Amino acid sequence: MEKLPKVGLPILIGVILLIIVLAKSAVTLDSGHAGVLYETLNGGVVADKDPLGPGFHIIAPWNRVIDYETRQQEMPEKMSVLSSNGLDIKLDASILYQPDYKNLGRLHNEKGENYVSRVLQPAIRSAARSVVGRYTPEQLYSSKRDAIQEEIFEETRKIVEPQFIQLNDILIRDVTLPPTIKQAIERKLKQEQESLEYEFRLVTAQKEAEKVIIEAQGKADANRILSASLTDKILQDKGIEATVKLSESPNSKVVVIGSGDSGMPIILGNQ
């Protein structure tokens, strides 16, 4: 085997060193990610320096980049908390969050890469205990769930936003009560529903009765007004008018004899 020329050996070593330097200097960040630059010779991460965005970057080989996902992320969380009367309530929630992009350096310096377990999880648990402790199991199970969700979100947001975490939403997927309490609440809700239906039927029946009374009263008033307006003279004129029309009918033969008690003609015979 031939020996390498004396000039070729340093070149080979130089190429190897160049490859190593380039490998340590080249950094590629995916979409939805950002990098915090750790400067070994400059005291670590400079907090007020903008993070590195997605794409290809060249850095000094003695520095390094800490990769953070900056897209919205979901953290499922199951919690056991106490209601206002001391009953154990289990919440199943989803927390939607992402790091504060502009303050990634501060987030890394103060909380580190494990900021979720160090800040977000304790904050959501503390807020859930505080909020749920103000409500009864019945409120948690039915009418107040949306309000409770909003209150937990607001209390958590106040804790995490000053610590460079952006909280987007908190979704309460499920509220689990002790079985006996849940059954008691369901029975009560069923009874309330039946009571409302019964009251509705009573109100409907009452309105129908009032309608019949009003219609009957209207007819009675109309008859009374009509009776008051019908004098003997008017009745006689109406009778004569009807008699004339009847006598003009081609299907009748009219014989008038005498008069009735009221002075009206008497009509006999027809065909």
Results as ranks from 00 to 15, higher is better:
Pro162Ile: 13
Ile170Ser: 03
Glu138Met: 02
Tyr141Asn: 11
Val160Asp: 08
Leu171His: 11
Glu138Phe: 01
Ala147Ile: 09
Tyr141Met: 07
Gln163Pro: 09
Glu161Met: 12
Thr156Val: 04
Leu140Phe: 06
Pro162Val: 12
Gln163Thr: 13
Glu155Lys: 06
Lys158Cys: 12
Gln139Trp: 04
Ile152His: 00
Gln166His: 11
Ile148Leu: 04
Leu140Ser: 07
Glu150Leu: 05
Glu154Thr: 07
Glu154Val: 05
Ile172Met: 12
Thr156Ile: 05
Leu140Trp: 03
Lys158Ile: 14
Glu155Leu: 08
Gln163Asp: 11
Gln139Gly: 10
Glu151Trp: 00
Leu167Thr: 05
Phe164Pro: 02
Gln166Met: 12
Ser143Ala: 07
Ser143Asp: 11
Arg173Gln: 15
Glu154Tyr: 01
Arg157Gly: 03
Asp146Cys: 00
Asp146Ala: 09
Ile152Pro: 00
Ser143Pro: 02
Asn168Ala: 14
Glu150Gly: 03
Ala147Gln: 08
Ala147Leu: 06
Asp169His: 14
Ile148Tyr: 02
Asn168His: 14
Thr156Asp: 01
Pro162Glu: 10
Ala147Asn: 07
Leu171Ser: 13
Gln163Glu: 13
Gln139Asn: 10
Asp169Gly: 15
Arg145Ser: 02
Gln149Ile: 05
Ile172Val: 15
Thr156Ala: 03
Lys158Pro: 15
Glu151Thr: 03
Lys144Glu: 11
Lys144Leu: 05
Ala147Gly: 08
Phe164Val: 10
Asp169Ala: 14
Glu154Ile: 04
Ala147Glu: 10
Ile170Thr: 11
Gln163Val: 12
Thr156Gln: 00
Lys144Cys: 04
Val160Lys: 07
Ile152Val: 06
Leu140Glu: 04
Ile170Met: 05
Ser143Gly: 05
Ile165Thr: 10
Arg157Ser: 12
Ile148Pro: 00
Ile148Ala: 06
Gln166Phe: 09
Asp169Pro: 07
Leu171Asn: 13
Arg173Tyr: 13
Asn168Thr: 14
Pro162Ser: 09
Ile159Met: 13
Leu167Gly: 04
Glu154Trp: 00
Ala147Pro: 01
Phe153Trp: 00
Lys144His: 07
Arg145Asp: 00
Leu140Val: 08
Phe164Tyr: 13
Leu171Trp: 11
Glu138Trp: 01
Lys158Thr: 15
Glu154Pro: 00
Arg145Asn: 01
Ile148Trp: 01
Gln166Thr: 15
Asp146Thr: 11
Phe164Asn: 08
Glu161Gln: 13
Asn168Phe: 14
Tyr141His: 11
Glu161Gly: 11
Asp146Glu: 09
Phe164Asp: 09
Glu150Met: 06
Asp146Val: 08
Leu140Pro: 02
Arg145Trp: 01
Glu154Ser: 03
Lys144Gln: 09
Asp169Thr: 15
Leu167Trp: 05
Arg157Asp: 09
Gln149His: 01
Ile152Ala: 01
Ala147Tyr: 03
Gln163Ser: 09
Asp169Glu: 14
Ser142Asn: 08
Arg157Asn: 12
Ser142Cys: 05
Asp169Ile: 12
Leu140Gln: 05
Ile172Trp: 08
Ile148Thr: 07
Lys158Ala: 15
Glu150His: 07
Ala147Met: 05
Lys144Pro: 02
Ile152Gln: 00
